[in-house]
Design a protein around this nucleic acid. Structure first.
Lengths: 262, 262
DNA sequence: CAGTAGAACATGTCTAGACGCGTTGAGGAG
DNA sequence: CTCCTCAACGCGTCTAGACATGTTCTACTG
């Protein structure tokens, strides 16, 4: 071993009120935060920690579990536990749906990813006619069936986002919006061609831990929350013409917004 | 017991590849999602689950641990495990720093909370001269000392947000901004009075799991991520006059933004 | 009747060990 | 030299039990 990490971990304080597994987690967390363990580095193995601290394996596992739920480390079956590498994040700017970008002929996700030098992909597109969930229906102002466009986005092969758009059928039916590939500029370009000039978007941002299906779809490590965005597009008549419900891996994005001071 | 929850949980499938503790968690999660267990309801106790499924206690605890990290339940020592109640959320609108609100004489947090019928409090105000962390320094365009204003916000007695503002000393020194209570309208009103008419704010939103100190300051249950906001205020000369670094309990807020389509 | 000690029950922490399965590298077979 | 087998190692799952500590309610005491 080039560097004796386990030997530098210190010893338990048996007089402390703090639980043993928390003390062990504290030592490991400190080693990560102080930079003695870098991104991607392997932590001491469970049996090394058992030997060093003189505790049972379950106690050590409890410590590692804690660090996992904090998002600091990731365990890989058969290999070891590693300091979690921070993936490159995408900065999303609040003008990402501005018309000038759309006019380049690219959808927002693609255009911005390429500008950031990231290879984007889109995946698993499903277009259906569907009754929208009731919070979406409330935003669309109708509980009728709508066109739903579901898809998954990837960065450099890693899935980072799933999104489902809902567009009222009277707008979408029989247009390229109902096709899997809606053409250059994406569905917003098609909406504008159909006379629904876009005025603004309202976006709501929540964050929470992912559901099992979201963990699966985005290959999320434990300790990774998700952003839940609900974006409503309004045309110049004030009508909601699209609601987009998005789940994003929170470790892959920074959302940027400009707020008015006036 | 008015309702035999544990009896309705189904049995393990010994032929399944899915780990036993995951199957148990699945049943409990389903009971919550289907509404057989409501917010605040107590789950079957560990020993009841041990009896029902015929497994050891550690296996049951593993299931409950999983649901805790998902944010679905919360364990209370000596009392039981309960379906986590969803606290009332605050909707933050993207115009929350608009001047018209400031002119009412109230700071943004207070004004918006009262409008939502929530009793707001501010807590633990610390004003110092401090060298800002380097990401903040980069936004201020200076690594010199700045005035830092730290404080904690509460809703109905529950801590939900900590924030630290950094203001360049040449702007803040000797003004009410350097006082614990900066007066009506908050520091933004004072900045404008000092000739720094505000033009816009840039806000960056991240989400991650909380650090131990954040768990402590915000009394976070496990399975609760935090929003990390960094907001930079620009005056009409284009100068960054304040950077505000905020940690918010993610289960207490919905962030709203308006995006331009042009 | 009020107050309290204690039992019963709840979760928290920890031990010691067993078996399973994915990964890796050394050493032998071809 | 190449390929394959297998042992060593690493984490994943599960058992059975012990003791600690917080909570609640009962029943006894004064």
């Amino acid at each position: 071993m080039s560097h004796d990490v386990v030997g530098e971990l210190g010893q338990l304080d048996p007089t402390s009120d703090r639980a043993v597994f928390r003390q062990i987690a504290d030592y490991l967390r400190e080693a990560i935060e102080r930079g003695r363990l870098h991104e991607g580095d392997q932590l001491p193995s469970e049996s090394q920690l058992v030997d060093h601290f003189g505790v049972s394996r379950m106690t050590v596992r409890n410590s590692l579990q804690l660090l996992q739920t904090e998002g600091l480390v990731i365990a890989e079956h058969g290999k070891g536990v590693f300091v979690r590498p921070r993936p490159p994040v995408r900065r999303l700017a609040s003008d990402r749906f501005a018309r000038r970008h759309r006019e380049q002929g690219k959808a927002a996700f693609i255009a911005e990813a390429e500008q950031a030098g990231i290879k984007p992909e889109v995946d698993g597109i499903v277009v259906r006619e569907d009754r929208p969930p009731k919070d979406v229906a409330a935003r669309l102002g109708s509980t009728r069936k709508a066109l739903s466009r579901r898809r998954r986005y990837l960065h450099e092969g890693r899935p980072v986002e799933t999104a489902t758009s809902y567009i009222p059928l009277d707008i979408a039916k029989g247009t390229p919006i109902a096709e899997p590939n809606p053409g250059p500029g994406g569905i917003y370009a098609r909406l504008e061609e159909a006379g629904h000039t876009l005025d603004h978007f309202d976006e709501e941002v929540r964050s929470r831990m992912p559901l099992p299906e979201e963990i699966k779809a985005l290959h999320l490590a434990s300790g990774t929350p998700v952003f839940h965005l609900v974006r409503t597009a309004f045309d110049t008549d004030g009508r909601a013409v699209e609601v987009c419900d998005t789940i994003m891996a929170a470790d892959a994005f920074v959302l940027g917004y400009r707020l008015p001071a006036r």
